[in-house]
């Protein structure tokens, strides 16, 4: 039987929870609305096609014949993310597996602490490190040193701890009973990993990859500092590039009217990319859990 006080507290809690969830979802909706509203003038007057077909990115020419080619920036974002994920995903997953199933306890703890620390470093520090350490090394290989490869490497370092930590957290939720069951059947560690741990952890590992990827897509400061910021579709890893995020950060300060609106369009494109990633992950997870 509930007392009056308990019922009242329940009601307060319920309304508090409702309020919080409305707030959380309305913020997302507001951001999307705001992005749409700000980019609408550009979408109407310029049209999506010109973001692809325009010859160049000349957003504020004196003659007023501006060109808004977003493809190079989109390519830079996609390529730098892809490169970083290709390196960081296997490294992060393997380090989590090593930590949980192979490493001696002391080493595993040390590794976990370091990874946590890495995950907490502000992105500007990564950019700073990239600029003073990584770029000079790359410069010796191919001047100017600020290029796509530098961006990929810095992004790799940034998302590696995210992936490793989330993967590690997922592996920690594997029931001890399943591991004992596997051991009691005399299964080797490899068979246990492949046959028991992986099917169980797959959805969580996918989330780890997703969040790592999204961090790479959205990262601004570090890539801005090391990528060189030349608007071009790279033909090699050593070409300087400018990502969508860096473009917004660089130009938002002085952009006006149409130019400003186009920057919001690129923000919208980033948002769409993230939604696409989430959708892909959902689809993929469904096929994985059915196995």
């Amino acid at each position: 039987m509930k007392t009056r006080g308990a019922t009242r507290n329940d009601r307060i809690l319920l309304w508090g929870l409702r309020g919080a969830s409305v707030l959380a979802s309305s913020i997302v909706l507001l951001i999307v609305y705001f992005l749409l509203a700000e980019s609408l003038p550009a979408l109407r007057r310029i049209g999506i096609a010109r973001f692809v077909t325009d010859g160049d990115w000349l957003p504020s020419t004196a003659e007023g014949e501006n060109q808004y080619r977003l493809v190079p920036m989109l390519a830079a974002t996609l390529l730098s993310t892809l490169g970083a994920v290709l390196i960081a995903a296997p490294a992060g997953l393997l380090s989590a597996v090593f930590c949980h199933f192979y490493a001696p306890k002391a080493l595993a703890t040390l590794q976990r602490r370091i990874v946590e620390l890495l995950a907490g470093i502000p992105s500007v520090i990564y950019g700073f490190w990239g600029l003073v350490t990584l770029v000079p090394i790359l410069q010796r290989l191919a001047p100017p040193g600020q290029n796509l490869l530098a961006g990929i490497l810095v992004l790799t370092l940034m998302i590696l701890p995210t992936i490793a930590m989330l993967a590690s957290a997922t592996l920690a939720t594997i029931p001890q009973a399943h591991l004992q069951g596997a051991a009691a059947l005399g299964l080797s560690r490899w068979t246990t990993l492949r046959g028991v741990v992986l099917p169980e952890a797959a959805p969580g590992l996918l989330i780890a990859l997703l969040l790592g990827t999204m961090r790479a897509v959205g990262e601004t400061m570090a890539v801005l500092m090391v990528c060189g910021n030349v608007v071009q579709i790279p033909t090699s890893l050593f070409d300087p590039v400018r990502t969508l995020t860096a473009n917004i950060a660089l130009e938002m300060g002085y952009a006006t009217s149409e130019h400003r609106s186009v920057l919001f369009v690129s923000g919208l494109a980033l948002m769409a990319l993230v939604v696409l990633l989430i959708g892909l992950q959902r689809q993929f997870r469904r096929s994985v859990t059915l196995v």
Binding site: A177, H178, Q180, G181, A184, L185, G186, G195, E200
Partner: peptide, 15 residues
């Protein structure tokens, strides 16, 4: 462990 099998308190089938 192949010679000595084990069944646990709760069913622990793999997923």
């Amino acid at each position: 462990r192949a010679n000595i099998g084990m069944v646990f308190q709760k069913p622990n089938l793999f997923p």
